[in-house]
């Protein structure tokens, strides 16, 4: 099974952290995006198996990017990964097609578990 992941987060720190976790757990990094706009573009270009999507980002937020990607690729597997774990936000993301929601700060195990689960469906 292919495990190519697109990491979307405006923070270098989080992208490095996620990359580290993913590589240690036999995932492949398809690419990295630093805002919602880049996420939408790179999704079309790279067709990753899964996306980890931050919410608070410049240019375009992760929620907007999620909606745009789902509109053109309804089967996209997107996991939100944000400190904005408000119930209303989580609900909006899930309703808009996100497969899971990881609240920062995250534990590596929680990330790996969520990705494995979504990829296996």
């Amino acid at each position: 099974m292919s495990r190519r992941i697109l990491i979307v987060d405006d923070a270098t720190f989080i992208r490095s952290l996620l990359k580290d976790i993913l590589l240690k757990n036999n995932f492949e990094i398809a690419g990295e995006a630093v805002n919602g706009q880049e996420a939408v573009t790179l999704y079309q270009q790279l067709q990753p198996d899964l996306v980890t999507m931050d919410i608070t980002m410049p240019e375009k937020s992760g929620l907007e990017a999620l909606k745009e990607i789902i509109q053109t690729s309804p089967n996209a597997k997107i996991i939100m990964c944000s400190a904005m774990g408000q119930q209303a936000m989580v609900l909006e993301a899930i309703k808009s097609g996100a497969k899971d929601f990881i609240v920062k700060p995250f534990q590596p195990d929680r990330v790996v578990e969520a990705l494995e689960k979504v990829l296996s469906h």
Binding site: A11, S61, S82, A83, G85, Q86, A88, M89, V103, K104
Partner: peptide, 20 residues
């Protein structure tokens, strides 16, 4: 971002608010 997000998450969940 994480401190602010978690700070607001607590308020939002308690008071049923949505904040960006």
């Amino acid at each position: 971002n994480i401190l602010g997000g978690n700070y607001l998450k607590a308020l939002c969940d308690m008071l049923s608010l949505k904040i960006d």
